[in-house]
Amino acid sequence: MRAMTRTALGTTTAAAIAVGCLTTAGVTTASVAHAASAPAAKAAVTHPAAHVEAAAPRAVANLGLTAAEAKKVQRVLKARWGYTGAVDGRLGTNSWKAMQRFLKKHYSYSGPIDGIVGSGTIKGLQRYLKRYHGYKGAVDGIAGSGTRAAFKRLAHSL
């Protein structure tokens, strides 16, 4: 009896997760109903999570800054680099577009002004942090602990 309850609970949970993941990904209600009733509910649970992640890129990249620290960065970006969004402490696409404009002008960022915090954006940021905020690591495009610590120092200096 206990095994049947676990199986029923596991199947129900898997179907609910599948429905939630598929709905988040923008699948129609008919598709969700079909996926939830499909015998391969286990497959639906393991695959949609990666699909949702790919479909919804991370909108905020504070790189370890608190909201208060990020607001300081946003104020400077608003005053000098064309940031037009709210000073809300969430470094989203528009904040990073303004940062990319700054990095392009002064720190050899050569990528598009798209607000995506990729390795090129991080390399430009690392060049700046190396020069003024004590970053000692490699300019490798990876926002590791050294990059994050130097970014915090930048925020505290504003």
Rank of each mutant, 00 (worst) to 15 (best):
R58G: 05
R101P: 11
L154V: 03
R148L: 09
G134Y: 11
G10I: 01
A55Y: 08
A59P: 15
R148F: 06
R131T: 14
I122L: 08
R101G: 12
G82P: 00
I122C: 06
Y109I: 09
V19P: 00
S157M: 09
V32L: 12
F102I: 01
V139G: 01
E53H: 10
A67D: 06
E53Y: 06
Q126C: 04
A18S: 14
S95G: 10
A36G: 15
S157G: 14
R58C: 07
S145T: 13
A49S: 09
G26W: 04
S37Q: 14
A67H: 06
N62C: 02
G144D: 11
L22I: 00
T11E: 05
L158T: 13
K136R: 10
H156M: 13
K105S: 14
L158G: 04
S31Q: 15
L103F: 06
T11N: 00
H106T: 12
W96M: 03
G120Q: 14
K97L: 09
T93I: 13
V60M: 06
R75D: 00
K71R: 12
A30R: 14
A155E: 00
G115S: 09
A30Y: 10
A44N: 12
T147D: 08
S31C: 12
A36H: 08
A30S: 12
R148G: 03
R101Q: 13
S145A: 10
E69M: 09
H133A: 08
V87I: 15
V45K: 02
V27N: 04
V117T: 10
A143R: 00
A70E: 05
A68T: 11
T121P: 03
Y109M: 08
T24G: 03
A15Q: 15
Y107N: 04
G26C: 07
I116T: 04
L63M: 09
K42W: 02
L65F: 12
R90I: 08
T28V: 10
T46Q: 01
H47T: 07
D88A: 14
W96I: 03
Y107W: 15
H106Q: 13
G137Q: 04
L129N: 09
R153A: 15
L9F: 09
H47V: 12
A33S: 15
V45F: 06
G82V: 05
A150M: 01
A67G: 07
A150E: 03
A3K: 13
A43N: 04
H47C: 00
K42R: 09
A18T: 15
R101N: 11
L129M: 04
S110H: 12
A86I: 09
